[in-house]
Computed example of a mutant assay.
Amino acid sequence: MGRSQTLRQNTINQFIDCINNKILSFPLPSISILAEAFNVSRTTIRAVLEHLCKKQILLFNNNEYHLLREPTNEDKIVCIFEKRSVQDKKFETYFYHLINHKKLLPGDNFNEIQLAKDTKVNPVVVREFLLRFLHYGLINNIKKGEWELVTFAKDYAEKLYEFRSVLEIFALKAFMAQPDNHFNWIKARELLQRHKNFQKNIQDEYTLFSTLDRDFHKLILSCNDNPFFMQSFDLISVIFHFHYQWDNSNLKERNNIAVSEHIAVLTAILQKNEQAAIAALCRHLNTAKTSMQESIGRALAIKNR
């Protein structure tokens, strides 16, 4: 199959998904606007529209394209995208990359069709991923297919801290109750050593802290084997940690403090001292909350200048 034919078939499937998810409005905008939205040529869009008219999904009347019927999955062309699980992981990684590398900042607008094109995934994958963040107030849906990354109010950090504390303290108690031969104890020892190695090289590697931070909190929460915990963790991790990345002020110092606090928690865990581990975790979560509040304050001060 030629590259142009593959692109055309991918675009047909994306177009169908956009119709079903009410991303497109009718009558359709001009071919030029559609070509720009789907990041393809006008020739490709014309071929897509022609195909959908033949399938009696669209009707061309008075120089406008109208919706004749709702498309179904049977209207799609088979074997275009990768498996759904692969697409989900690919887009999640890409979205986190955009935030972590400051390609997507608070207040920025972005288009879900363009994101789907950039990552070569189904637009439904993008929309469902973004809807998860919508519930947590991380993004706003401006209009069909258009989103905005939110700039938080200062009390947001306090509310998120309360929720995070409940989750992680509960999970830590469950972690401490695991049998001595559980594999998580080995993971904790390995993670402690990784932190100590990172601390030695933090002058040069402090910007790489995000992976270590994610692994630390993930280890604590994963012992419950609770999918709701892990879903919440993904969102909280992005909101808390990447606010550090948006604000470079004292980033090295803040990450250095966070590493030391992680080490204190892990050390207490491995000593089987539950009270000390919970106290150390509470200190760490409070530090993270304070850092986020200060970061939000600086961002708002800049915005209001």
Rank of each mutant, 00 (worst) to 15 (best):
E158T: 10
H217C: 08
L300P: 00
F26Q: 07
D118C: 10
H182P: 09
N141K: 14
L134R: 05
L167G: 00
N20K: 15
H284I: 05
Q14H: 06
D204M: 12
L130P: 02
I45G: 00
H182W: 14
H51T: 08
N73M: 13
I99V: 10
P179R: 13
E261W: 08
Q271S: 13
L285H: 01
W147E: 02
Y96N: 06
Q275G: 13
L285D: 00
S295C: 09
I139S: 02
L285Q: 01
H66N: 10
Q14S: 09
I302C: 07
N184K: 09
F81E: 03
R189I: 10
I169S: 05
N256F: 11
T267N: 12
L281Y: 02
S30Q: 13
R42K: 15
I139P: 00
N21C: 08
H262W: 13
Y65V: 01
N21E: 06
I31P: 01
L251W: 11
A258K: 06
R42S: 13
S222H: 08
Y206M: 12
F81P: 00
Y65E: 01
K103Y: 07
Q199G: 06
L68D: 03
R46G: 08
I33Y: 14
Y94V: 07
E162Q: 15
D234T: 13
F38Q: 03
I236S: 02
H66W: 09
A258D: 14
N256C: 12
K303T: 12
A301L: 09
N273M: 15
S291G: 12
V265M: 07
S30I: 07
